[in-house]
Design a protein around this nucleic acid. Structure first.
Lengths: 110, 110
DNA sequence: TTCGGAGTTGCAGAACTCTTCAACTCGGGG
DNA sequence: CCCCGAGTTGAAGAGTTCTGCAACTCCGAA
């Protein structure tokens, strides 16, 4: 293995670090979807969506296959859902901590 | 709330998308550590580490406090460990899927 | 076979992130 | 008081990533 593990991990997280890519993953959580449907829900240009899908595909996080005239995308592993869930939890924790801090700052001397 | 949720999520993942920052979080998983210790384990310039710590701090993922002459850092919530664990699982899944694919390609016609 | 819809690819400029250097703050000793 | 070790901050240049445009491929229907 030539790439250190922590670097592979960093790359994986970086891959998720884009609003369009996050939305794609959330939409794919409840099953495979054609590009058309993603495009209908995400409000971004087709070529831009395609670029972002390519990023996810290269990272191995989603897979694509053709179904008749349509190209379908799906999560490559359901573990992705766990990651998104963990992300949600941290976001919640961080935001309530911030509120807590604000309360602290208001109720005590700074 | 002015920032859409999926954008906040994307920012959080982007924050994790850097090798030094990942290593810091992994080291902090088993308790608060002074910057000196992080510096001793990570092999990066002090100012660079400081920059990366600032990124994590701004995102609310870690907190820092002074202890005598040293500055200590700690995870702001233990949920961060879950996120790293989920990341590890996906990395594993993606890599074994890749191997699976390679086997497929070798045993059938391409 | 030709057309049109569905996606993808290549590319260039704008926007962002990284790294490093130098200058700085802060809290103990001596 | 002055200095030193411990960290932080600011800024600039190099390097990446993002977006949108235009040109392209591929399948299915007429």
């Amino acid at each position: 293995m030539s790439v250190p593990l922590y670097q592979a991990k960093a790359e994986m997280f970086r891959t998720l670090g884009h609003p369009v890519r996050i939305r794609v993953l959330e939409l794919l959580q409840d099953g495979p979807k054609p590009v058309r449907d993603l495009l209908a829900e995400i409000d971004v240009e087709a070529s831009n969506l395609s670029q972002q899908l390519a990023v996810l595909r290269r990272a191995g996080i989603v897979v694509s296959f053709r179904e008749g005239a349509l190209v379908m995308y799906a999560l490559s592993t359901p573990d992705v859902a766990d990651l998104l869930a963990a992300g949600r939890r941290i976001l919640g924790a961080v935001l309530t901590d911030r509120d807590g801090l604000l309360v602290e700052l208001r109720t005590h001397r700074t």
